[in-house]
Computed example of a mutant assay.
Amino acid sequence: MNGYAPPASQSRSPSLYRATHDPNGPATLSTTVVHALADCMGVDVTDSRLSLYDTVDPDALNELFRPRHDGTPRTGGTLAFVVDGHHVTVRGDGEILIEPPARR
């Protein structure tokens, strides 16, 4: 055989969870992130593991991607952080990507 086979001990990479924040909607970006994390983790949104405060200031996160003073959207840039082993990437276009921890 000429194909590559990963070692038996190597686990598959976890699936990537995707969510989108609507900057014109009623929820703040940090609220959308917390709800996306809860969905990804399969827990209630009030679960204590979902606190962003240990990793990122929710108010700063909300301000970072809010529209410019002239009203134009901030579509560039990304912010990445980890919450309870979940790698979270927030993009300026509103996309939220969450990679769960690898299974052992």
Rank of each mutant, 00 (worst) to 15 (best):
M1C: 11
N2D: 12
P7I: 06
P7W: 10
S9R: 10
Q10I: 05
Q10V: 12
S13R: 15
L16Q: 05
L16T: 07
Y17W: 14
Y17K: 04
Y17F: 12
R18H: 13
R18F: 05
T20M: 11
D22F: 07
N24F: 13
T28C: 08
L29S: 02
L29H: 02
T31F: 01
T31C: 01
V33H: 05
V34R: 07
A36T: 07
A36R: 06
A38D: 00
D39F: 06
M41I: 04
M41W: 03
T46W: 12
S48Q: 13
R49A: 14
S51G: 13
L52Q: 01
D54C: 02
T55Q: 06
V56R: 10
V56Q: 09
D57L: 03
D57W: 07
D59F: 13
L64S: 07
F65S: 00
R66F: 14
P67D: 04
H69T: 12
D70F: 04
D70A: 02
G71Y: 08
T72V: 14
R74F: 12
T75N: 10
T75C: 09
G77M: 00
T78N: 11
F81R: 04
V83Y: 07
D84W: 02
H86T: 05
H86E: 01
H86L: 00
H87K: 11
V88A: 03
T89E: 12
R91L: 07
G92K: 00
D93G: 10
D93L: 02
G94K: 08
E95P: 08
I96H: 00
I98S: 09
A102S: 15
A102T: 15
R103H: 14
R103W: 08
R103A: 13
R104W: 13
